[in-house]
């Protein structure tokens, strides 16, 4: 009998393909991005010592290594396995890829975290990736120096300073409309205000963990203070879901 694949099988195959190729493509980008400076150092004669390289890296790592560890863990519950290999390769997660995923989930009316939601997010991130690559190649790669000469300095200055708040304000509103979890939204708002205006000013060292702490607090509060009436409804219908790995 050749029936259409069940949801479980279809999703399993999707996870299999995307995790295998996601890892492969990400590894290829990882190697290429490291090969660039290393080949430059080997082929050119810059008189740079190993110590200089190590010192420079350690100084940068002291600031950013913690973020590099915390961010992938923080974003995993939002992105899911497949999109992780897209997002942490392309970057621009909060200002481009996730907003694109939220817009698409809202447009197609699917819930984030559901199977349909995951597929829609992956498609949206693919669309965003194409625009990302084309816009950078075209407007930075080819016309970049020309653009720099015609765009007035004050415009670039404003873009540099206020690009992030101008994106985030809109994305929060769109996320609220798309996710439709009023309780979680309240917990998230309370946790954000607490961390940004109380915790970080008191203990500046937690700064790098700010988003992660808010995410953790919100997940815990949303989970333990959830409307438990929903659980029974969800637990009853066929739920050998994701039963095998």
């Amino acid at each position: 009998m050749t029936t259409a694949p069940t949801a479980d099988q279809a999703m399993q195959q999707f996870e299999h393909t995307t995790s295998r190729w996601g890892r492969l493509t990400m590894s290829a980008v990882l190697i290429t991005s490291l090969a660039a400076p290393i080949l430059l150092l080997i082929l050119g004669d810059f008189g740079v010592t190993f110590n200089q390289l190590l010192t420079a890296y350690l100084a940068v790592a002291a600031v950013y290594l913690v973020l590099a560890i915390v961010e992938p863990i923080t974003y995993f519950p939002i992105l899911g396995q497949a999109a992780m290999y897209q997002a942490f390769m392309i970057g621009n997660i909060a200002n481009k890829l996730l907003p694109a995923a939220i817009v698409a989930q809202n447009r197609v009316a699917v819930r984030p975290g559901s199977r349909q939601g995951d597929l829609v997010a992956v498609m949206a991130i693919c669309g965003a990736a194409v625009v990302h690559v084309v816009s950078l190649l075209l407007f930075v790669g080819i016309f970049g120096t020309w653009l720099l000469s015609v765009v007035p300095e004050p415009v670039i200055e404003v873009a540099q300073l206020y690009i992030l708040p101008s994106i985030l304000g809109a994305v929060v509103v769109q996320a609220l409309i798309t996710v439709k979890q009023a309780r979680s939204a309240l917990f998230a708002a309370a946790a954000s205000l607490f961390v940004v205006f109380a915790l970080v000013p008191l203990v500046p060292a937690v700064g790098a963990f700010g988003v992660a702490i808010v995410v953790l607090l919100t997940i815990l509060a949303s989970w333990f203070l959830r409307n438990k009436a929903h659980d029974d409804r969800l637990n009853r219908p066929e739920t050998p879901e994701a039963g095998q790995d």
Partner: peptide
């Protein structure tokens, strides 16, 4: 199974509200 209906949405709201609050 209820975890997967609550956690992704909660994490999404939390991440964007935190990033916004930091601005």
């Amino acid at each position: 199974p209820a975890a997967m209906t609550i956690i992704p949405g909660a994490a999404l709201l939390a991440a964007f509200m935190a990033l916004t609050a930091m601005e």
